[in-house]
Write a protein that binds this DNA or RNA. Structure first.
Lengths: 225, 225
DNA sequence: CTAAATATTTACAACTTCTTTATAAGAATC
DNA sequence: GATTCTTATAAAGAAGTTGTAAATATTTAG
C-alpha cells in the first residue's frame, strides 16, 4: 500500500517538528504548512489523506480556513486547539471537522485519532452501498430501497439521507446539516430541515409518527440509526 | 517513572512532619513551605504535581493564595481545613480547589485523595469517550449508553452529565455547577439542580434511591464517581 | 410555454423540555 | 426526640422546539 499523506497546518515550528517525527515514524508521509495560504495551496495541489489544522493560526481565522477547505476537500480534518476553548471546538465540529485534540496533547492519543479517521475514510470511500436492516442506499446508482421496494426521493431528500447514513449513530446539529445540504448561510433556516425530515420519514419509516431511523434530539439536531 | 512531587503549604511543623513521613513512604517527593509567600515561590520555581494547602495560614488569607495559584497552576490543589469551617471549604472549592480534607484527618484517607487527584491529572482532557463500569459517554457522537443501552438525555441533562464526568471524583459545588450549566446569575437556583440531578439519576443509576454515580455531598454539592 | 415536480414559506398543532411550586423525606443540630 | 436545615420527588404551568399540512414560488422536463 502507498504511504498515506498527512498535511500539517500549524504556525509553531516545534509542534510541526514534533508531529513530523512522530508521524513519519508511523510510516506516514508528512507535508507542512506554516500559514493558512500555504496550507490551502499544498492541499489543493495534491490533496492529502488527512489534514491536521491548528485552529489558532495568525494569518487567517482557522474556522474560515476550515470552511474553505471543506468546500472541496472531503477527507478528514482534525483540528488542534488550545484547551478550554469549548466554543471554538464545537464551532469547528459544526464546520465539518472530523475530530479535535487539545494542546498540549499526547502523541499516542493523536496517533489513535489519526488512525481512526483514516480508517473511516477508507470505509466511506470504498462503500458504494450503505445498508441497515430494512434500508439500502446505493451511492453509485443513486437509489434507495426499503424492504427491497424502490423508494423515490427528491435530490434534497436523497442528500439528506446520505448525510445521515454516513454519520450513523452520531448526533448531527441542525447547523451542521443545513450547512452540508444547503450551504453556508442557511444555518438559521431550521424550518427547511423540519419539512424535509418530515417527508423523508414518510418515505423511509414504517410508522412516521414513531420514527426508528431518524431520531429527534430536541434542542440539538437529529441522529440516524 | 519519575517520583511525583507534592508541595505542602502549612504553618504547623507537626503536620508538615507527619505529612512528609507518610508521603515519602509512598514514594512521593515532598517539598515544604511554612508561609504563603514561600509556598508561592517554591511552586513557581518548580511546579509540583500536586499541592496540599492549609487554608488557615497566618500570613495571608488562604483563599487569596488559592486564587493566585490557580491563575497559572493547573494541577490539583487539595486544601486542608479545620473541621466545621464548611463555608471556607465551599469557598475554596468554588475557587478551584480539587478536593478538601478536614483536620484531624486520617492519613489513609488523605493518601487516597492524593492518588485520585494525581490519576485525574494524568487523564487527558482530550478524551472523546468517557467510560466507567456501566456508563459510556461519547462526546463526538453526543451519545450516552448504560450497559450498552442507549440513554436518551435532554440537552441540560447531557451537559450536566458531561460536566460531572469530566470532573470525576471531584466535589462540585452547587454554585460551580449552576454557573457552568446555566451561566452566571443562576447561582442561587439550587432547586434546578436538584430537579435535574433527580432526572439524571433516574436515567443513569441502577437504583436512583441509592445512587452510586452522583453522590450528594450535603451542604456542599455533588461528586461523580 | 406549460405541466409537473420540487422547494420554500406560512400557520398552527403537537410535543418536549424547562421552570416553578408544593410537599415529602432525610440529615444535622440542639 | 423535636426542630431546623437541606435534599428529593412529583406534578402543574410556561416556554420553547418540532411536526404537519397546505399555500405559494421556483425549477425542470417535455
Amino acid at each position: 500500500m502507498n504511504k498515506e499523506e498527512i498535511l500539517i497546518i500549524d504556525d509553531e515550528p516545534q509542534i510541526r517538528k514534533l508531529l513530523e517525527i512522530n508521524l513519519e515514524s508511523q510510516g506516514y508521509k508528512v507535508k507542512q504548512a506554516e500559514t493558512a495560504t500555504m496550507g490551502l495551496q499544498l492541499a489543493a495541489n495534491h490533496p492529502p489523506d488527512l489534514i491536521l489544522l491548528d485552529i489558532g493560526l495568525p494569518d487567517i481565522n482557522g474556522q474560515d480556513l476550515l470552511v474553505e477547505l471543506k468546500n472541496w476537500y472531503n477527507q478528514s480534518i482534525i483540528i488542534i486547539s488550545v484547551l478550554d476553548n469549548e466554543e471554538e471546538i464545537v464551532r469547528a465540529l459544526d464546520n465539518g471537522a472530523s475530530d479535535y485534540i487539545t494542546k498540549p496533547f499526547r502523541t499516542n492519543e493523536l496517533l489513535a485519532r489519526i488512525r481512526a479517521c483514516l480508517n473511516r475514510n477508507r470505509i466511506e470511500d470504498n462503500k458504494t452501498v450503505l445498508t441497515s436492516t430494512d434500508l439500502q442506499i446505493d451511492l453509485l446508482a443513486r437509489t434507495v430501497t426499503r424492504d427491497n421496494e424502490n423508494v423515490k426521493l427528491t435530490l434534497t431528500e436523497y442528500k439528506l439521507l446520505v448525510l445521515f447514513a454516513k454519520n450513523e449513530g452520531r448526533v448531527l446539529t441542525h447547523q451542521f446539516i443545513l450547512k452540508e445540504i444547503w450551504g453556508v448561510g442557511f444555518q438559521t433556516d431550521t424550518q427547511y430541515l423540519r419539512v424535509f425530515v418530515g417527508t423523508l420519514r414518510k418515505k423511509i419509516e414504517q410508522n412516521p409518527n414513531k420514527p426508528v431511523h431518524i431520531i429527534t434530539e430536541s434542542g440539538v439536531g437529529y441522529r440516524f440509526i
